[in-house]
Design a protein around this nucleic acid. Structure first.
Lengths: 200, 200
DNA sequence: TCAAGAAGGCATTGAATGATTACTTGAGAC
DNA sequence: GTCTCAAGTAATCATTCAATGCCTTCTTGA
């Protein structure tokens, strides 16, 4: 079941309701993406009426942009937490592992990742593409704080994109023993593979 | 104007017309993806009527699947060409560069890449996700023919995914001097960056 | 030449969807 | 209590879209 939709016929402050719809939007847009998700689907997920969600956000596009930016924001925050926790040594393999772990821990909630991927692939909607560039730039800048040279940051981001794509295509839930994709999944996710098999 | 739509009112063999609509579908689905592209958009691009394109392929989903598989097939073929050209040395940096070049040359036609990305991100449509897994497995297996160990293949694929994402969000066409994304784009695309700036 | 099969368009349709408007109801202030 | 404003919904509308059925026209082979 979805976590905490409407529980009572109680009224809610606009602010709280907005936050709740935003969460519901994350879940809904994670499947379907921008074009494939109706405002009604978001409304159902949030337990409110469809006209209300468009009134809160003005437009489906605005809603998606907020959902997208919040999702990427969450990811950025996870990296920042690692960087702020204690001094980061760019030469340390251990510190690099901590950064990687921050990401794979995030992977357990597929929704952020899926929303991010959907935002990244919708380059045909100018506003979404612009948001994607801005957010990706932000994530890159955050990871630069590690002190790594640009190539290492690039490779780190690239690895993350591979994980996103693999999750997007549900690779962890479809491991077929002889399949080359299983080899790829195994060597991409490593120990985390087992944790990703149950669909959200 | 779109390249080579209908040129004459001449009839065409069903086979030829099918191939032509498939090409048009690639262009159309490259923008918009599965959910964001109407069969009518494909029809317009191909210069035929909308009902005709669904009659050729049966269903919009079937059309997309064919377009997707053809696109990934093209990419696989490019790698295979490099591998078949002459013996591949897994230790050679030069041979690795040849593989990379095969991909970046493909990047000039954004359409394949975008279609591929759209297929990869549409995990909510089971048939598309299944095709994505199958195709990704195929590409991985092809690259394994280099003789590289799995980790090296994985990193190669990951790098490719980063390029896909960057192109999807139109990064090469939006280089802003101070922007961190510009740094990422520069060190991801290298010399090829200049060639990618003009939108298809 | 003409019949038959295939290529392809036209009109249509029923469902879905994003958005608007007008209405209803709950809760706090006084 | 009741007034008032904000929370929330029901009804509706104009579009868009995938799919179906029927009709037309080109081509080919005998």
């Amino acid at each position: 079941m979805s976590t905490m939709t409407a529980e009572k016929v109680t009224r809610m402050s606009a602010e709280d309701r907005r936050a709740l719809v935003l969460q519901a939007g994350t879940r809904a847009f994670a499947h379907g993406g921008y074009h494939g998700t109706s405002t009604d689907a978001v409304a159902k997920e949030a337990g409110v009426s469809q006209p209300y969600v468009v009134r809160i956000f003005g437009t489906k596009l605005d809603l998606f942009l907020e959902v997208f930016e919040a999702s990427v924001g969450r990811i950025k925050a996870a990296f920042e937490a690692v960087l702020d926790e204690r001094p980061f040594d760019p030469e340390s393999e251990d510190d690099k592992a901590r950064m990687g772990l921050a990401y794979t821990e995030l992977l357990r909630d597929h929704d952020f990742l899926q929303v991010m991927m959907h935002g990244f692939s919708n380059g045909d909607v100018p506003e979404i593409a612009a948001a994607a560039r801005r957010c990706m730039g932000g994530v890159f800048a955050t990871i630069q704080r590690t002190g790594w040279d640009d190539e290492k940051v690039r490779d780190f981001v690239a690895y993350g994109m591979l994980l996103n794509v693999m999750i997007s295509m549900r690779a962890p839930e479809h491991l077929v023993p002889g399949d080359p994709l299983t080899v790829l999944a195994t060597c991409a996710f490593g120990d985390e593979l087992g944790l990703l098999q149950s669909p959200a």
